[in-house]
């Protein structure tokens, strides 16, 4: 079983998102990191880049694969987690701590699921 914290929202493309004071934090779910295997590089975007809900904003590399990461919301990137560049293993070891970006000026959302709905969705994917 994968961990899906109750306080987060999820996308069908396996990102999690959390809103605090207008700032939306985005990362990859436990399901996603498990499916990808050992992540060796996170190709992060830059602060100030615009992101669009449902569109790719970065990719992650495992040894023999590369996977797109989609933004759950539309807005402007306020912060990126540079720690992932030095230590991509953080995504595998602590996926809900290893956030990718924080988005401000959010003006749109992809379809977001709560933990229970996401869990159901993962079962159907497996």
């Amino acid at each position: 079983m994968f961990k899906n914290p109750e306080e987060l929202k999820y996308t069908k493309t396996h990102e999690w998102v959390k809103e605090e004071d207008g700032l939306w934090t985005v990362g990859l779910t436990d399901f996603a990191q498990d499916a990808l295997g050992d992540i060796v590089f996170v190709n992060l975007p830059s602060v100030g880049d615009e992101v669009k809900a449902g569109e790719v904003f970065c990719d992650v590399e495992s040894v023999k694969a590369v996977s797109d990461v989609y933004s759950p919301v539309s807005g402007v990137i306020e912060e990126v987690n540079d720690a992932l560049t030095d230590d991509p293993a953080l995504v595998n070891n602590d996926c809900y701590g290893a956030w990718f970006i924080k988005v401000k000026d959010v003006n749109g959302e992809d379809e977001l699921l709560d933990a229970a709905a996401y869990e159901e969705f993962c079962k159907s994917e497996a």
């Binding site: 060796v40 590089f41 590399e61 495992s62 040894v63 023999k64 694969a65 590369v66």
Partner: peptide, 13 residues
């Protein structure tokens, strides 16, 4: 190493 940059994995990207 760093093969995920290459065509056989990233294809058109």
């Amino acid at each position: 190493t760093l093969q995920a940059r290459e065509q056989h994995i990233r294809r058109e990207k």
